[in-house]
Design a protein around this nucleic acid. Structure first.
Lengths: 151, 151
DNA sequence: CGCCAAATGTTATATTGTATCTCTCGACGT
DNA sequence: ACGTCGAGAGATACAATATAACATTTGGCG
């Protein structure tokens, strides 16, 4: 059912990200680190432009969205980040080493987004697609609604 | 499991749409009919701009996207159309009278999109959200992948 | 050093989505 | 007939999201 993740004791999200990238033969540049830090610093899904603004401020120079998109795409394909389709935004992935079809719960009031992994649900979605003669690559399972705080 | 819809024998999609709108106290104007026809004429999800272009051509005059958006929003709230979040596009809903959380299978190669209803799956997604203390309003369940024709 | 490829910068443009104000038209009361 | 009111639609501007094309920088490596 629900998957239990071990925590990265003491190891920062960012250094785990670095490790993951390097294991897959990609460089961990200043820019990539800055984008990752910015992404991870948001407490809700961030758009590429949010991230570009944040990195721009931190570095005191203009960083174009374009560059951020490139890096976000890279992160998504390395499983360091996920795209929240219904919000046109991205979140950092705590567990780049665990592959899951994940489920996002996005509060329509405050924007807070929580992340579930439930392989039996996502497996059910994949199976339903297969039964319809469709080859599933990437399930998108998100729920819009109200979080606990916003009722 | 899978829900079986009765067909609207002979009754066109558009006249069913008209009926639905009128039952909910909304007008069925020329413009709304034109937008619905255009939407229904696409064999894959259509963006608001696709529809604006199509209606513009049909009517030999410029129809602005914002008018189309207004009408699409109305259609979505009346369940005459659905938004495909991962494609920023819309599809007509064959069965405005049946409420379902629906599942879209979107081919990344050809764009063809098929529509499943599976209340046990969507119910499972809603339940998982509730267990996490979240009040689900609108599940978004879509699967990107390859359709039967594209393998 | 000189070369090459990857990464990033720069600029422009495409696509998607909203906001605001105006105009038209029909329903309704006088 | 006249005025008025509101829903629908038009027009325009703009904001937000995303991609394309080309130039420049950087770092590894012979």
């Amino acid at each position: 059912m629900a998957h239990v993740h071990h925590s990265h004791e003491g190891e920062s999200l960012s250094s785990a990200a670095k490790t993951t990238m390097e294991k897959s033969g990609e460089q961990w540049t200043q820019m990539r680190a800055a984008v990752f830090e910015a992404l991870a610093s948001f407490d809700k899904p961030a758009s590429a432009y949010d991230i570009a603004d944040k990195v721009s401020k931190e570095q005191g120079r203009r960083v174009a969205a374009n560059s951020v998109y490139r890096i976000l795409d890279l992160f998504v394909s390395a499983n360091l980040a996920r795209r929240v389709e219904s919000a046109n935004a991205y979140v950092a992935n705590d567990h780049p080493d665990c592959l899951h079809d994940c489920i996002f719960l996005i509060c329509d009031n405050c924007g807070q987004t929580t992340h579930l992994d439930n392989d039996s649900l996502s497996g059910g979605v994949r199976d339903a697609a297969k039964k319809a003669g469709f080859a599933p690559e990437r399930p998108v399972i998100e729920v819009r609604g109200r979080c606990g705080e916003c009722n």
